[in-house]
Design a binder for these strands. Structure first.
Lengths: 184, 184
DNA sequence: TTAAAAATAGAAAGGTCGTTCTATATAGTT
DNA sequence: AACTATATAGAACGACCTTTCTATTTTTAA
């Protein structure tokens, strides 16, 4: 098994476990065991647990955006509603239990600045995405709509933990339509 | 210093620290030190750390509802908007950094059933509150509105972590009004 | 005032954590 | 075939965790 597959296995297992049980809830021992890797192989690729967390977050962000992009470019309805739908599908498939980035902010604020920044950047990117979309569509107050849609997505993520992805998506999309209808 | 004040000090300090750094991020040693209490005093009142977590959650829930009730009964505008405003004020004053109950669900799901249940009950109570409010006000689909408002509040809580309580409240209340206007 | 109850400091047990170290084995390249 | 880079298992480290124990002091109430 080549170097890169070992590293990939570590990142994949770490992401799953961190998401499932939280960053502090998972020890390196468990990651190592489930990735079928030796301790020093992990430390060969990542200088510390926190650096592993960083790379997990970066990878997850990439996957999130490529997921969103590929969903949106194939869609027919309003780009706002599409983005909300795409996010809901992401939740259903990969994020049924809260948001990893928000979790990272809460866990590492005041502890590891680098991790906190990576997580916060993911959120500002979401805000910028909606803002740009609003500008392109000549919405009156792009910043307002962007913030409201981001708030909507954050709420959907939390609701998924409480009532499941399907119902959360239903309410979320209904709200997005009302909101969009009201501003356009 | 009487028995009950020691217990209160422990609960108060524990709530602050758990909220600030997460349940796993705070050790009993720190709680004991900041509450000016001996180790055995803590174990005299709480049989374990998890039981302490339980009581902290119960106390926080009581405070949340009495805060909401006292805010709402003095209000003049629509009870839905009032509830959202009250929640926003609670966020600004006591919950600027994510939601403790959601956090408890994520941290203790599959680990401590009792804690998970207490946290989940808090959320279903919120849903029932809105549902009853919707029924009293003869809304067409009470369950739908209740879920949408709960989603809105959850989103506001997350947004508070990202952009601060004031701006989050602004967007949240604007959305609540649109939503309410649309259903009534 | 005296007896019971509660709180005290601090050590100790038993565990897990992240990280480092050692010494051996495996793979890939020339 | 030999050399270099990587991966291996597993021990060891010091720090921290929750929980228990001990022995002493303080508070409460009859």
């Amino acid at each position: 098994m080549s170097r890169s597959t070992k590293k990939d296995a570590l990142l994949q297992v770490a992401e799953r476990l961190f998401y499932e049980h939280g960053f502090r809830g998972v020890g390196l021992k468990q990651i190592i065991r489930e990735a079928n890797v030796a301790t020093m192989t992990l430390y060969n690729h990542f200088p510390s647990k926190n650096k592993l967390v960083e790379e997990v977050l970066k990878r997850r962000e990439e996957r999130y955006w490529s997921y969103l992009d590929s969903y949106i470019e194939r869609g027919l309805s309003s780009p706002f509603v599409l983005a909300v739908e795409a996010h809901c599908r992401w939740l259903k498939e990969h994020s049924y239990k809260g948001d990893m980035f928000l979790r990272a902010i809460e866990d590492y604020a005041g502890i590891d600045e680098e991790i906190e920044n990576i997580a916060r950047e993911h959120k500002t990117r979401l805000l910028h995405y909606f803002q740009q979309l609003a500008q392109e569509n000549r919405v009156n107050n792009p910043m307002d709509l962007a913030n409201q849609l981001t708030l909507l997505l954050e709420g959907t993520t939390s609701m998924t933990t409480l009532i499941g992805a399907d119902k959360a998506a239903e309410y979320s999309i209904a709200m997005a339509k009302v909101l969009f209808q009201h501003t356009s």
